[in-house]
Design a protein around this nucleic acid. Structure first.
Lengths: 325, 325
DNA sequence: TAAGGTTTGTCAATATATTGTCTAATTATC
DNA sequence: GATAATTAGACAATATATTGACAAACCTTA
């Protein structure tokens, strides 16, 4: 125990009210009547909430405004509440955030980034996961990816290159984010006629966070994504592309390996793909191969927002000239 | 039946009305006259419905508007109602199923394994994910892991070694299972005093499915798991173990590489860990290093059930001699 | 076919439950 | 002292429950 108290920040009821969008009276009533949350107290007896409480109240707010009666859902776990929301899948609502100005949100996000980074340093996967969960609830998934995950990964990446973090830190984070990719993806299934893309990293490129991010983004953009993880030979990537009928292949290149393997693999892959699919390459160290990419007519992905543009373009040109047969 | 304690998803009559398309009065009348549904009650006496009730009412709505009299169909099972609809050839909304009898379970599982394997061959990640999702709901997570995931991975593994599957197949499956690990883990959070374990694969060992399975199993067994993914040098694994205060480290060795790197890494890791943590090794190809493991006093994990036994033993011996300070 | 009974959806009246909000008096915090 | 939190209780607005009734639709059978 005592982990929650020390690990996550403490909030008084007015803050909680602002963040959850519930009146203070209501928060107290829900506690009194249904033990929806059970905050600790100060010596003087004032309620002290943590991040989990806030996430919980936020979820309860959504669930009840979805038609559920508070008495029936107050004792459900975070996961059960999330499932409930997922099931209901009410695309009509999408209420513009009750209040919470954009500056609040920015501050909140930075706060989360700090907390997450601290959890990474401490090697505390559980804590990191909790922060992620809360953040996904508080910020919308889309916002979470762009404004929290991306900066966090950049920070981890650069600090790792600077020697401030061990490889094991990065591995742990990668493993966790991979496992959480599910809840990020799960909300918007791609339509059947969506275009397909294969995302991977070439052989010798073991760091896949960027590629993983890219695949989440592509799913959000309504693509069918076949994510293959790291370190695959060109034939395999090409085979996956062919099997899935993908119109694009994106490679993540983020290790400064600068050896001869990567150029060779890219060459081979380009040859194997021919004109069936567009080849894209991105990542921190893609620059190292700029000449090669130019020569082979491989599209360079500058950053994530550039990636989104490329996806849109490809999608449009694909839709305008449907199946050749 | 009598699965009300299912805890999640309890609905009041207005919600049920919206979802089923039946007026509240009618729902009550059907209950009063024909026991079409038998909801539980709140303390105050209000009706509380679950997902099955809703599915049932939806079906009854369709069936009756198809011409059947409510008195004749009110007591039919979900399956019977569905059959009725199917016969009538009325392409209406499909209703999610939940209920399953235990006798079907084995057959059902084998069916799922077939379907999942087919999805893997077809490179259809979305389909595979759907099968997984359905299976996890239909079978309990625990059962899912032991009776579906394990055989499926074995099948994939052996067929991959036999050359029937491409590496890319295995990569895709790995990536997907990693991302679904979240919902498998998420239901039973480990208590704060749970022992910790680090799970990884040594450098040059890139295939992590086994290690991933092991980490899911360990989480189910109530351990704090720090999962580091594949291909980590010994110092990193040792560092993670030290940081997290883990009492055990499990390595997955499933590639027939039989080179000199793995023995070297295991030796180094054992040295780095000293007596602070128990070193375990498992996986298809751990046999290749049997002599080394014996020499270094590394526990060999025979299979997943053996792994569970080991975890229990370690947990007990850890609890009996708590913190040295 | 017409009469008579049965089924079925709907409604009304009355009583109880649930739930968000509010007031008042008191106590913490800074 | 000003601001914010606390408790306890009260209140009104909805939602639900129960019971009984009723007419339209549906049957059966003479």
């Amino acid at each position: 125990m005592a982990e929650q108290q020390e690990s996550s920040a403490q909030y008084l009821i007015s803050t909680v009210s602002k963040r959850s969008g519930l009146k203070t009276d209501l928060i107290r009533a829900w506690e009194r009547r249904y033990q929806a949350v059970t905050p600790t107290r100060t010596e003087g007896g004032q309620r002290v909430y943590n991040d989990i409480d806030i996430a919980r109240l936020k979820l309860l707010n959504q669930v009840t405004s979805n038609g559920h009666s508070i008495s029936q859902v107050a004792r459900l776990s975070l996961d059960e509440l999330r499932n409930l929301l997922k099931k209901e899948e009410t695309p009509l609502i999408e209420v513009a955030d009750t209040h919470q100005s954009s500056s609040d949100k920015q501050y909140l996000t930075e706060d989360y980034i700090e907390k997450c980074y601290a959890a990474v340093i401490e090697f505390d996967a559980k804590k990191l996961e909790r922060h992620f969960e809360n953040a996904i609830v508080e910020l919308e998934p889309q916002f979470f990816i762009e404004n929290l995950l991306e900066p966090l990964l950049n920070k981890i990446g650069s600090n790792w290159q600077a020697g401030l973090l061990r490889p094991a830190h990065e591995h742990m984070t990668t493993a966790l984010i991979r496992s959480m990719a599910y809840i990020l993806r799960t909300n918007n299934p791609a339509p059947d006629n969506a275009p397909s893309i294969v995302i991977s990293t070439p052989i010798s490129q073991l760091h896949e966070l960027g590629a993983l991010m890219a695949s989440i983004i592509a799913e959000f953009k309504g693509w069918h994504v076949t994510y293959l993880g790291a370190n695959l030979p060109a034939e395999e990537i090409a085979a996956a592309c062919k099997y899935t009928g993908s119109i694009a292949v994106a490679l993540g290149i983020s290790c400064p390996h600068d050896d001869i393997v990567v150029p060779k693999e890219i060459r081979r892959l380009k040859k194997l793909l021919g004109n069936d699919a567009t080849l894209l390459a991105g990542g921190k160290c893609a620059d190292n191969y700029q000449l090669l990419l130019n020569e082979l007519n491989v599209t360079r992905i500058e950053n994530y927002s550039h990636f989104k543009d490329i996806l849109d373009q490809l999608k449009n040109s694909h839709l305008s000239k449907p199946m050749p047969n």
